[in-house]
Write a protein that binds this DNA or RNA. Sequence first.
DNA 1: GCTACGATGACCT
DNA 2: GGTCATCGTAGCA
Length: 196
Amino acid sequence: MTPRLALPPTFYQQPTLQLARALIGKRLIRICNGVELEARIVEVEAYHQDGDRACHAYAGKTARNAAMFGPAGHLYVYFIYGMHYCMNVVSEAAGTGAAVLIRAMEPLSGLETMHANRPSAKDHYDLCRGPAKCCQSFAIDKKMDGQPLGGKNIWLASDTSIPTQEIREGARIGISKSEDLLWRFWHDRNAYVSRN
DNA sequence: GCTACGATGACCT
DNA sequence: GGTCATCGTAGCA
């Protein structure tokens, strides 16, 4: 079994696009009702206030996106479509609005609890195959907004060795602005990715 | 105060 | 591939 050690704060200080790539293969670990949930990240999208009109921080800081302007390595969790939550890893120095959206993960352990958290999932592939599904399986909502990764309830741990050449990049999904930016990164031909 | 809409998912055809 | 549930924000009056 791979180590459970949290990644150091310096990991989150790399530029947003670089961090987005680096997040592919990392493991997200969360303690939920005493059960350890673990999954590896297989799909992400980067968002940055500078020149990215799809970024929630593009128009400046508000109560909703405040966590994006906070220190790197914290969570930005937002509510969308009246019923879903999505989680981001905050990047860049405090004062800059940028983050990486976790779009899909491959469940590794605690699958029983994930299914309990997300009853509509028909199989383990469907537990974390989409940003809102990740939050549902991991029981992440607004209460986690602004929380640090590396605390005792939730943290990121080292790689599950995905070769760099297996990481693909392309246009982000579900946005209607700045669609030209190729800021989505995913593990090629991975069945847990929302779209290949 | 009012209103449009969104970094989605479930279900239908 | 299409529809729609459901509500917090932001933008505007």
